[in-house]
Design a protein around this nucleic acid. Structure first.
Lengths: 249, 249
DNA sequence: ATGTATATTGCATAATATTGCAATATGAAA
DNA sequence: TTTCATATTGCAATATTATGCAATATACAT
């Protein structure tokens, strides 16, 4: 039986009974419980069900599309997420922008962490549902085109009411001279608002976004305190940023 | 039985009877009272109920995020949703409270309707993603325990910035003399804010919520303009409301 | 006060999860 | 085709969690 078939059957079962049991599936699908467990984890990552000890149960009534966790498993993003953890201390208030990179970082947080997360991203909210010690504050506003976050005037105004310890945001492009820039005007404004009201700014970026630029200006490169990429921080290419006083991780 | 199932069943019981008894659960779930006690403690830590000697009682209204519960009254809710449609006109701004009844009503909207929906409910946002002509405005704030809506000071403040044509909200209890009341203090405040800033108030209620009351006052019965239930509006029991100037559907 | 029911705690046992690893299968590029 | 990289799967060792039991403490009713 193909793996895809198995996953499908598991989803069907869930739809029918609201739950599946590990051992039952193992028998039904003729694979080891290990495999079933991995299947369930995969489906759980996609938000199609909720993995629990001994099996899985139906997830929340929120549309799976909302969870958009498909893209978070890339190698790069996991590496970045791991580095983010070094900066976050329990009890802090952390302002998190929308985007796949930040979502991946949040996804990598240990389940028992104590935090206050302020965000305008629906997928991030959805992830944090299972974190008992994380207070979530959602920033309202106009739903943006993709439906994964809010934006617009009210969102920016709401952000201005916070003074976060840390701001975590993914960047489109960063260049030492041209600063941080984005491809979307509205998002650039949001990012700027977030940066302006936070004490410590962490920018997340994959390596290919460094040294390039986009049309909309967000802030100067040295407005950020730390830059996290998936590469080794000792790479010579990043020396310029180090000299500008930015911590590279 | 999975532990997660047990926890769900306990929450369901609470939602139904407002209380659970240790020994009953022990029998029903086929586990020792120790285990039930631990389950209750866990749920109590999450704020889903209040543990008391010998069992547990309702903490605040339970969000029916378990499928079983959602299927209760589906029929009624569909009937209600159909009636709601008569009130909504294309192009209006409509403020929608969180809850299964309102969610059902939104779910019944025709896909091509042109509207602006303002809501603090994640499931409603998720439904409206597929509506190309619906502008969605999400009201931010503190995420509530169950993660399906926001609440608190900021949410109320944000609501005050709107002047909706229609306010749609589900009610816990309505009584001609005692007015509209709710089981959760915070939610009552939210409802009141919504009512105060809207031009036309539609209350949704299943028939069993009429003539009863809960601890927290929301508004006088005649503060609403229309009351929609699943029953025939000519039922004599509702005459009192009609005389108070409330349109019954 | 006294007895009974309920709670708490520590512990032993069993069930389940995680991790690393090796064998095999799959797929894409040379 | 051949070769190499990657994904999949099962297995074993280890860690974690869940559960019932017993001993002890606490609350409640009369």
């Amino acid at each position: 039986m193909l793996k895809a078939e198995r996953l499908q059957k598991i989803v069907e079962q869930i739809a029918k009974d609201n739950k599946v049991v590990l051992d039952d599936l193992s028998q039904l699908l003729n694979v080891s419980t290990d495999t079933v467990r991995r299947d369930i984890k995969e489906l759980s990552d996609k938000g199609l069900l909720k993995a629990v000890r001994g099996g899985a149960i139906i997830g929340s009534p929120v549309h799976p599309h909302f969870k958009e966790r498909q893209h978070i498993d890339t190698h790069h993003k996991k590496a970045i997420a791991q580095k983010v953890l070094e900066f976050i201390k329990p009890g802090q208030v952390i302002l998190v922008g929308a985007g796949t990179t930040t979502t991946a970082a949040i996804y990598a947080l240990p389940k028992d962490i104590t935090l206050t997360v302020v965000t305008n991203s629906f997928p991030i909210v959805s992830i944090l549902e299972d974190y008992p010690n994380v207070d979530v504050f959602f920033i309202g506003g106009q739903l943006n085109k993709h439906g994964f976050s809010t934006g617009g005037y009210e969102t920016i105004e709401a952000i201005r009411n916070f003074r976060a310890d840390i701001c975590l945001f993914g960047i489109c492009s960063i260049d030492l001279k041209l600063g941080i820039t984005g491809a979307d005007h509205e998002e650039s404004l949001l990012d700027r608002a977030m940066i302006e009201t936070s004490k410590y700014i962490i920018a997340l970026s994959t390596y290919d976004k460094i040294g390039v630029s986009d049309p909309y200006y967000v802030c100067a490169a040295n407005a950020i305190d730390a830059l996290i990429t998936e590469k080794d921080p000792s790479t010579a290419d990043l020396d310029g940023f180090k000299h500008a006083g930015i911590l590279i991780k």
